[in-house]
């Protein structure tokens, strides 16, 4: 493995007496497609929130591109090239689809972009996810799958090196899931490392080069998807539900 783009070591998080995450180690190589699975309440979203700075981990470190992220708040991590999409889409409801994309374009790149450059990049991103015709609509007019696409386009607008997609396909139909998986693979082919957190196993298996399994706040498996999926401990965790 080349030098990891993301390295989580010994990460722990408690909520009062409840241990949400315990001693999590995780390395992600540049350009990798990683699947992160686990039953409900296993701590997947908490881990994402700790990595992105929405929550502050009690123990352990998160390193991104060899830089310790301790003390950096979410927007600072975003500006370093770490993007996320939310489990439930969280668009800016009062803005048009195009303006939703403008916000990260205005706030992430240090070099000042001209109005034309921003508009061009905005169109490019909307085209990439297939929302080009809906630039002037508002989020409330979008279908579920388009909402997911908007979420990914907005994440892409921060020009990320790492994209964390938190359940980007929940509630979508079969063909829509394929749409999103293909989109994520396209993004990955453009050099972006992707972590996919997902319940839909077919999507995870199709997408992931490596699979990590969390159960009750602990990492119980990490390896090639077809091997991990047959791990007796993983089977037990899923069947035991």
């Amino acid at each position: 493995m080349s030098a990891p783009i993301l390295e989580v070591s010994g990460l722990g998080k408690r909520f009062g007496g409840f241990v949400a995450l315990e001693n999590i180690d995780l390395k992600v190589a540049p350009g990798e497609r990683l699947g992160l699975i686990g039953p409900n309440g296993s701590g997947k979203s908490t881990l994402v929130n700790c990595i992105c700075g929405t929550l502050i981990n009690d123990t352990g470190t998160v390193q991104f591109n060899d830089r310790d992220l301790k003390g950096l708040i979410t927007h600072e991590r975003t500006r370093l090239g770490m993007a996320r999409s939310f489990q439930l889409p969280r668009p800016f409801f009062s803005m048009t689809i195009a303006d939703n994309i403008r916000v990260p374009l205005l706030y992430t790149l240090n070099a000042h972009r001209s109005e034309e450059q921003i508009a061009a990049r905005c169109n490019e991103l909307l085209g990439l996810v297939g929302l080009a015709g809906k630039a002037t609509q508002f989020p409330r007019d979008l279908t579920q799958v388009d909402m997911r696409k908007l979420e990914l386009a907005r994440a892409m607008a921060v020009e990320p090196k790492l994209l964390i997609a938190d359940e980007a396909m929940a509630g979508l139909s079969g063909s829509e899931v394929t749409d999103i998986v293909n989109l994520l693979i396209t993004l990955n082919e453009r050099g972006i490392t992707v972590i996919l957190i997902e319940h839909i196993m077919s999507a995870v298996m199709q997408f992931s080069q490596r699979l990590v399994v969390l159960v009750s706040g602990k990492k119980i498996a990490d390896g090639a998807p077809d091997i991990v999926i047959r791990d007796p401990e993983v089977e037990r965790a899923y069947l035991g539900q």
Binding site: T54, I73, T74, E76, T78, F86, P91, R154
Partner: peptide, 22 residues
Amino acid sequence: ALGYGFAAIRDDELAAEASGVP
């Protein structure tokens, strides 16, 4: 840009942070 940032805060602060808005 300030106005877009303000509106993003009003709509969803968490999403604003994730979009790089301080």
